[in-house]
Amino acid sequence: MKKVVLIAGDGIGTEITASVKKILETAGAPIEWIEREAGLGAYEKYDNPLPDETVAAIEEHKVALKGPLTTPVGTGFRSINVALRQKFNLYSNIRPAITLPNVDTTFKEVDMVIFRENTQGLYIGKEHWVDGDDKSHAESIAVVTREASRKIITSAFKYALQNNKKKVTLVHKANILKLTSGLFLEVGREVAKEFPDVEFEDLIVDNMAMQMVMRPQQFDVVVTTNLFGDILSDLASGLVGGLGVTGSANIGDDVAMFEAVHGSAPDIAGQNKANPIALLFSSLLMLEYLDEKPIAENIRKAIYKTLVENKDACTLDIGGKGTTDSFTEAVCSNL
């Protein structure tokens, strides 16, 4: 059995984690769950949205599956998710976006994976007021290092090789941000030479956004910096049905965390309406990380079979008539 820290999170978190647990158990996944708390619920209970025992459990067991978290307002915590990524140096944020059967979208045959550098760039929030109390002039600092760039870009190329992807596209703004984005592009060109069997291209981020909504099928693996990756990965999710149907992984050298990136949806919490697909796909990324790929593939086939043959069992947000429970039961039946 492989021990995995499970953080249900807030809002719909308890419902979708219960669904994922049942499906993985039915599939025979050799997982022992170590349940811990984080988010608004943890803050209300312990006066800390990221309790020490949760951090300690992740340090010990190295793998975590996390539901959506609500960051308490006015507590001094900018983002629990960012804190976890920085604490464990989870430098690779991996977001697949794949067209699903029988999910209504404009775009067909999308199959791309976005690799986002997770610890640097503009997104880390290094900001300050230039004029002190006047607060009329603010500056933000973007950090890009050769080491971190090499790690994420190398991860993208290795993924391409291991998953029979033909091309890696590096996204940047080196025409304007000549030092930070320029360094990222420079390292990308260096790494590309080490993987001659994988095609390499680079695109300026504004052109990339346009190309993604014109011909998203042209992209296989995309690698970019933190802020650009944050935006483009949500765009990619939108191409295939939204954040409710796409999984996410955060991987470092020693620790990995898998999560649903959608919100905690408190407005539907406890109503059996939540769609567990995003967290379920995140758990499949986790199973692949744990060298349980056959089990992950079996679950994926069961999900696809449910979407095709029993759409009414699916939740309302993807055009079904069902509930969290009915979707879970349908996938388990297909397994």
Rank of each mutant, 00 (worst) to 15 (best):
F219E: 10
F219V: 10
F219R: 11
D220V: 08
D220R: 05
D220H: 14
V222I: 15
V223M: 07
V223F: 04
T224N: 13
T224I: 10
T225S: 15
L227Q: 13
L227T: 05
L227R: 02
F228P: 00
F228H: 14
F228I: 13
G229F: 02
G229V: 11
D230K: 06
D230M: 09
D230E: 14
D230A: 11
L232C: 11
L232Q: 00
L232D: 08
S233Y: 03
S233P: 08
D234S: 14
D234C: 14
D234R: 10
D234A: 12
L235F: 03
L235K: 09
L235D: 01
L235C: 08
L235E: 11
A236F: 12
S237Q: 04
S237H: 03
S237A: 15
S237M: 10
G238M: 09
G238P: 08
G238Y: 05
L239P: 01
G242P: 07
G242Q: 06
L243H: 06
L243Y: 03
L243T: 04
G244K: 07
G244H: 01
V245W: 03
V245A: 06
V245T: 03
G247Y: 04
G247M: 11
S248G: 08
S248W: 03
A249Y: 04
A249F: 08
N250H: 10
I251A: 11
I251C: 11
I251G: 06
G252M: 01
G252A: 11
